[in-house]
């Protein structure tokens, strides 16, 4: 039962990811992204990472996917694709993909996979909060400052110039 559920969720993730890459309609890509993100959140549940799973949905589906869709819907005639960068053809790309696939396949086959028994779901929230505010306080604060800078930068770039 667990295995069946796992393969269902893993399949959802992979098919969603394939849909993102292969779909010719950008809106369909975004909807496949939804499937991939929800599937990834399901995989986190299998790893007994409840907080990460929920935050994955909250941030990626509730925030980033919505904003992506927003941008897509606001863009005029986004369904007609005009590939502007054709300097490198499809054949070299295929070669690169095959090479990369070989390398990753070799890595997967050679890796010493460490199999653990199914972990009991223990609350992770307390541990995450505790390490953020004790052990990793400085990196946490630095990340906040970086994000704040990005926010201010986005506003500066996107606002209309006010002229006296």
């Amino acid at each position: 039962m667990y295995a069946a559920l796992f393969y269902f969720i893993a399949g959802l993730t992979v098919i969603g990811a394939l849909g993102v890459a292969l779909s010719t309609n950008v809106v369909y890509s975004a909807m496949s992204l939804l499937a991939a993100l929800v599937g990834a959140s399901g995989l986190y549940v299998f790893l007994a990472a409840d907080f990460v799973a929920v935050v994955q949905i909250l941030v990626y589906v509730g925030g980033i996917l919505i904003l992506t869709l927003f941008a897509i819907l606001l863009t005029h005639q986004i369904a007609e694709i005009q590939v502007s960068n054709r300097s490198v053809g499809r054949l070299p790309a295929l070669g690169l993909v095959v090479l990369l696939g070989l390398a990753m396949g070799a890595a997967i086959l050679r890796a010493p996979w460490h199999v653990e028994p199914l972990a009991a779901a223990t609350p992770t929230t307390y541990g995450i909060g505790d390490s953020f505010l004790n052990q990793y306080l400085l990196p946490f604060e630095l990340a906040s400052v970086v994000l704040l800078t990005a926010l201010v930068g986005a506003i500066v770039l996107s606002r209309k110039e006010l002229r006296e």
Binding site: D50, F51, V54, V55, I57, L69, L73, P123
Partner: peptide, 25 residues
């Protein structure tokens, strides 16, 4: 009774927005 209950409700109701956006488009 999820350990992350409040967060879960906030997150899952976000899917409603996707549905509404999808319907609109």
């Amino acid at each position: 009774d999820l350990n992350v209950g409040v967060l879960y409700i906030t997150a899952v109701t976000g899917l409603v927005v996707v549905g509404i956006l999808m319907a609109g488009w």
